[in-house]
Design a protein around this nucleic acid. Structure first.
Length: 462
RNA sequence: UCCCCGAUAGCUCAAUUGGUAGAGCGAGCGGCUGUUAACCGCUAGGUUGCUGGUUCGAGUCCAGCUCGGGGAGCCA
């Protein structure tokens, strides 16, 4: 693999076979062509020197254009030119797949706009940027699993399809096999979902949290890591209709343990990326976001600020800033408020704790003051809210009180309530948007460019 | 969903008060060179997003639509 060679794991003089896709070709009248070949195993492409004495030099090599797939056999040699330490002196070049109309190949050897590349998402993976994003994304995903595995957490596969609107976390996608042009109706003319596939309404999950809590109260430390769906009509650089979410849940734990976990976890996976994907991170720092590396290093080295919600409100009220949305105790923090807190006031990640109960979901634990719940948001400069979590309400009477207050159907949560009846324990957890994490690490401005095939309102191409 | 901006060659963008639509890159051909986003010359490439309107004449002005971008809401 090209990654092994460019990492110095293959000695010059070795016969090698490399397989990949052509980036550029430059011909020299000295009787050779220079090919840059990439195979995605590392950031860089490798230079292949193709002498004109190759049997298919005239027929194939001189006609190679960006995107052609090749198998090159030859000797790894120290480069005579500047710009690379080693190169492959080709003994044979096999053209595996030609580009049949080079004029229309969408990925030219030049800079394309990300907006354009989204329209050719099936080929953008061949660019420097999207190769780097894919490798960093993988690295982060593996780092997540490794972090939890090494600390005794179990990965729980919570369902993709769910019959309950778990936490009221937004609009849901309906899952149905009913014939839309011939819907079954009941006596009152309503759609009869009892005749749908699951015998009732079903949806794509908006969170695995309620389900994973059941395993938390048996296996102690668990997490989910899977796709999540929100049918919100959100058109922003930080929202997707289909995204991946990481949700750890820890038993015998309170909000402080939760915040500690969030901080240690984020720092650990960021450290892993810096260690393992230095080549890609160098690219992001050079071409995408100047502070990509220094920002992560600073993130890792500084302790998160911790701030009570009430204190945050106080800070905002005394900031002298004129916010579009006025601030007072009881309101939810807007994007502009969160940005001020993390970017201007403390200038580093901040965990805001204990929010008013009326702006948070029913399952969050009511504090002794009776008006706040044990919720936390982790805010980071440049991205805003990256984590939202809470200590869960483990007392059945309190939970029922919250369910009633919010006019929810107690029966729908019968199994969730059972957990509070049979050996309940204090527990806590949080949700981390995986794509937002990839965005933060890479500095990519739009969330649609950190997932291979983004799904957003009006767009499910590819 | 709301506010603002935009859509011109394969890509990135020009085009003066409404008057014959251009450049760079990419592509093709030729030249030059152990080349590095190579360089030099030539060539091809367009129903100016769609529909309608105003006008002698619309890339340019007006309306609607579609798509994209920035910001906001919802949130992760």
């Amino acid at each position: 693999m090209i990654g092994d060679i460019l990492a110095g794991r293959v000695r010059p003089g070795t016969q090698v076979t490399i397989q990949g896709w052509l980036r550029t070709r430059r011909d020299s009248k000295a009787g050779l062509s220079f090919l840059h070949l990439h195979d995605g195993t590392c950031f860089k492409a490798i230079q292949v020197v193709a002498p004109s004495t190759l049997a298919n030099y005239e027929r194939d090599v001189l006609k190679l254009t960006a995107g052609c797939s090749l198998v090159v056999r030859g000797e790894l040699v120290e480069s005579q030119g500047k710009g690379q330490a080693v190169e492959v002196r080709a003994g044979s070049i096999e053209l595996v797949g030609a580009v049949d109309d080079p004029d229309t190949y969408p990925i030219a050897a030049k800079q394309h706009s990300f907006e354009y590349l989204r329209e050719v998402a099936h080929l953008r993976s061949r660019t420097n940027t999207f190769g780097a994003v894919a490798r960093v994304r993988h690295c982060l995903a593996m780092a997540v699993h490794r972090y939890f595995h090494e600390r005794g957490y179990y990965w729980i596969h919570t369902p993709i399809i769910t019959a309950s609107d778990c936490e009221g976390a937004g609009e849901m996608f309906r899952v149905s096999t009913l014939d839309l042009v011939n819907l079954p109706r009941d006596e009152s003319g309503e759609i009869d979902y009892s005749r749908d596939f699951f015998g009732k309404s079903a949806y794509l999950t908006v969170s695995g949290q309620l389900n994973v809590e059941t395993y938390c109260q048996a296996l102690s430390r668990v997490y989910t890591f899977g796709p999540t769906f929100r049918a919100e009509n959100s058109n922003t650089a930080r929202h997707l209709a289909e995204f991946w979410m990481i949700e750890p849940e820890i038993a015998f734990a309170d909000l402080t343990d939760n915040a500690d976990l969030a901080e240690d976890f984020l720092k650990a996976i960021f450290r892993t990326v810096l260690d393992e994907r230095a080549d890609d991170m160098a690219f992001f720092a050079e071409r995408i976001e100047k502070t990509a590396i220094t920002r992560l290093e600073k993130f890792i080295d500084t302790r998160f600020e911790r701030m009570e919600y009430a204190e945050a409100i106080d800070v905002l009220e005394k900031s002298g800033k004129s916010f579009e949305f006025p601030v007072s105790w009881g309101v939810d923090l807007q994007t502009e408020h969160e940005r001020y807190l993390t970017e201007e006031h403390v200038k580093r990640p901040v965990v805001v704790l204990n929010y008013p109960k009326q702006i948070k979901p029913f399952y969050m634990r009511l504090n002794d003051d009776g008006r706040t719940v044990a919720a936390m948001d982790v805010l980071a400069p440049g991205i805003g809210e990256i984590i939202g979590g809470s200590q869960r309400e483990e007392r059945l009477d309190m939970l029922d009180g919250r369910i009633d207050e919010m006019n929810l159907d107690k029966d729908a949560y019968w199994w969730y309530r059972d957990l509070r009846r049979y050996g309940t324990v204090p527990h806590a957890g949080f949700g981390l948007g995986f794509e937002r994490t990839v965005q933060y690490v890479t500095g990519m401005a739009n969330i649609r460019d950190v997932i291979p095939f983004p799904r957003t309102p009006n767009n499910a191409d590819f």
